[in-house]
Design a protein around this nucleic acid. Structure first.
Lengths: 116, 116
DNA sequence: CAAATATATCAATTATTCATGATATATGGA
DNA sequence: TCCATATATCATGAATAATTGATATATTTG
C-alpha cells in the first residue's frame, strides 16, 4: 500500500452513495449483494450505480463475482485492512496507550460480538 | 456520526498531502507538530498547507492548539474512531470471524507494540 | 438466432476541488 | 507603536469528478 493507492481508497468512500454501498456490503457480509439489489435499495440510477461500484472495485474495497446474468458484490476486508494499516502506521509505536481506546471501540461496534 | 460527516472525513484523507499530514501526526503522537514544521517536512507552500490543515480540522481528524505565534496540530483519534465505527458498523454482527483477521492486523502495524 | 434481463461504457454537461499569488490577521518583541 | 514571524483567508484559473441519456456487452431463455 502506498499513498496513491490509499488516497484512491479514501476517495472512493468520500461520496455518499459509495459510502452507503460499502456499508451495506459490510452488513451483508459473506452473502454480498447483487448490483441490482444495491441500486434498488439506495434508489440510484443503474448507470450511476455501475460507475460507483466500479470506483469501489478499482479502489480495492469491494470484490465481485458474476452469477449468470447478475453480479454479486462483497466488501473486501483485505482492502480495508491495507488502507487502515497504512493510515495508522506507527500509531502504536510511540505511545501505545494512545491507540488503545481507539482499537477497543473499533473492534466491535455492536453488542452481539463476544469474541473480538 | 452520519453519512455526511463521514464522507467529509474520508474526503479529507483522499488527497496525498492531507494523507501525508495525517500520517505524520499519527506518528508524532502526543507531541504533535507545528503547522510550519509540517509544511517544511512535506515541502508544501504555506497557504496550501494552511488550507489543507483546515480541511482536516473541519473533518474532525486533527485538533490544534495555539502556542504563541505558532499553532500545534495533533491527530484526533476520537475522530478516526467515529469515522471507522460508522464505516464498519455491524461488521461483526453477522460473521465475527470475517472481521477477526482484519482487526488483528489493524491493531498494530509495527513490531514494537506488545500490549495491543 | 432473437428477445429479454443485468450490467457496463460512452459522451457531454455540470459541479467540485486544488494550488497559488496576494493579502489579512494574530502574536511577540524592540 | 512599529516590525517581524506564523498562520489564515480571498479570488481565480485549472484540473477532476459526478450525473445522466444513450448505447453496448454479456448471459439466459425460447
Amino acid at each position: 500500500m502506498d499513498t496513491n493507492k490509499s488516497t484512491q481508497a479514501f476517495a472512493a468512500l468520500s461520496q455518499a452513495t459509495r459510502l452507503d454501498v460499502f456499508r451495506l456490503l459490510v452488513k451483508a457480509g459473506e452473502d454480498g449483494l447483487l448490483a441490482g439489489e444495491i441500486g434498488e435499495k439506495l434508489q440510484v440510477k443503474q448507470n450511476t450505480m455501475s460507475a460507483n461500484l466500479s470506483v469501489l472495485l478499482n479502489a480495492g474495497l469491494v470484490k465481485n463475482q458474476r452469477e449468470g446474468r447478475t453480479i454479486r458484490y462483497y466488501a473486501d476486508m483485505d482492502g480495508v485492512t491495507a488502507m487502515l494499516s497504512f493510515l495508522l502506521e506507527d500509531c502504536c509505536g510511540g505511545q501505545p496507550q494512545l491507540c488503545q481506546p481507539f482499537i477497543q471501540q473499533i473492534t466491535c461496534s455492536t453488542d452481539n460480538c463476544d469474541d473480538a
